[in-house]
């Protein structure tokens, strides 16, 4: 890989320590969620006040349907939309999307790379592949830990089909693609890595907030369609084990459109610090 795809290798090699730390962090976090879910049943967790949790809390279980956070799929789904999970995903996306173009332009190293016989498309393709691999690894770790937890715990296995875990992982990957595409477009047009990281965090944080507000306030319900969290529903996936193809298509399409825009923007711009 090092000699055949040097730009991909470079992007991953330079961030290898950060990526390893994030992967370990994701594994530990999801393991913690599984342990908590198994140790204290959802009914015990949420039955204290004698009331069911408000509907807006579905935002915290990754559901837009019938899955309450006071259920095993809801709690496990909560681990897949938790701010910590979001922060890990955004760190990978922001860092590697910035590394695609903007970071090299900002630091001036782009001058050494792009006077070689490589096209701008190849630069972006290898850097997009690096981002995709890192995101895939992060989602694979989260999925694997939850799958092991479901397999080892009979009460979890009864409430959550194993296929649901993998569907949730698939949706997680589509969700990261959805955020990565626009982040790559910002990187392709920008000369500052801070702009890319800021935009990535903005997409994620604003998306989550908009979805929560839309669930909590009926007058703003229409806003949910502009949030990626409306389409990323791991709680529903864990409960039912079926792929919501419509949502999956929306997340994938946004990611692909953003990536296509990145290629177009990069082809037109100047490449100098």
């Amino acid at each position: 890989m090092k000699h055949r795809y040097p730009l991909l290798w470079l992007a991953l090699h330079r961030r290898r320590r950060m990526l390893i730390a994030l992967l370990v962090g994701m594994a530990v976090f999801e393991a913690l969620i599984v342990v908590i879910t198994v140790t204290v049943s959802p009914q015990e967790l949420f039955a204290g006040g004698g009331r069911t949790p408000p509907g807006a809390f579905k935002a915290f279980s990754g559901s837009t349907g019938d899955v309450s956070i006071a259920s095993y799929p809801g709690l496990l789904g909560g681990g897949l939309v938790h701010p910590f999970w979001i922060a890990l995903q955004l760190t990978v996306i922001g860092s590697l999307a910035a590394a695609a173009v903007a970071a090299d332009v900002e630091s001036g190293t782009i001058e050494l790379l792009m006077v070689r016989p490589i096209s701008r498309n190849r630069l972006l393709a290898e850097r997009t592949a690096a981002l995709a691999l890192a995101s895939l690894a992060l989602n694979a770790v989260a999925t694997a830990v939850v799958a092991v937890g479901v397999l080892l715990s009979p009460q979890l296995h009864q409430a959550v089909p194993l296929s649901g875990v993998f569907v949730a992982g698939l949706l997680g990957t589509a969700f990261t693609l959805c955020l990565a595409g626009p982040a790559l477009a910002v990187s392709a047009a920008s000369s500052r890595r801070a702009a890319v990281i800021g935009a990535t965090i903005g997409f994620g944080a604003v998306g989550f907030a908009v979805n929560f507000v839309a669930l909590a306030w009926s007058k703003a319900a229409g806003l949910r369609f502009v949030s990626p969290f409306h389409y990323y529903t791991p709680g529903d996936a864990l409960a039912h084990g079926t792929v919501p193809w419509g949502s999956f298509a929306v997340l994938t399409a946004v990611g692909l459109l953003g990536t296509a825009a990145a290629f177009r923007l990069l082809a037109r711009r100047d490449l100098a610090p």
């Binding site: 090092k2 190293t109 050494l112 070689r116 016989p117 610090p273």
Partner: peptide, 25 residues
């Protein structure tokens, strides 16, 4: 090409840098 303000990847060794740029060439 030698840029006027030469910027390199600080974590790569000199040998890795030359090999990376040769691979790209």
């Amino acid at each position: 090409y030698l840029p006027g303000e030469l910027r390199l990847y600080p974590e790569l060794t000199g040998g890795q840098t030359l090999q990376l740029l040769a691979d790209l060439q």
